[in-house]
Amino acid sequence: MARALINVPKTAKRGQVIEIKTLISHEMETGFRPDRVGKLIPRDIINTFVCSYNGIEVFRADLHPAIAANPFLTFTTVATESGVLDFKWTDDDGKIFAEKANIVVE
C-alpha cells in the first residue's frame, strides 16, 4: 500500500488562500531503465493526481516519468467552507490511492 503524507491547515478564514502539500510513496518507474540483464523495466508511474473540495475538483495534475520518485506536489486553493478535501492518485494500472483531510472554515 502506498503511504501518503498530506499537509492541510486544520482551520482557515473564509476566502483565505491555503497551501496544500502532498507526498506519496511510489517508485515512478520511468520505463526507460534497464534491469540487471538489460531488459527495460516496464513503466509504472502515477499519471494523475486530483484534489476535490467537498466533491468539486479544485486541482489536477497530469504527471509524466520526469516526476521524481515519491511524487511531491504543492498547490493552493481558496478556503470556501468547512468540509473534506479528497486526494486521489491514479497509476498506470488504474490503481487509485485515496486520502482525505478535514478543514474547518470560519
Binding site: 488562500v17 491555503i18 497551501e19 516526476i67 521524481a68 511524487p71 511531491f72 506536489l73 481558496v78
Partner: peptide, 12 residues
C-alpha cells in the same frame, strides 16, 4: 478556486 497560481513539485 486556486486563489493563486503557485505550484511546486520535484522533477528528474
Amino acid at each position: 478556486r486556486s486563489g493563486a497560481a503557485r505550484v511546486s513539485t520535484r522533477i528528474r
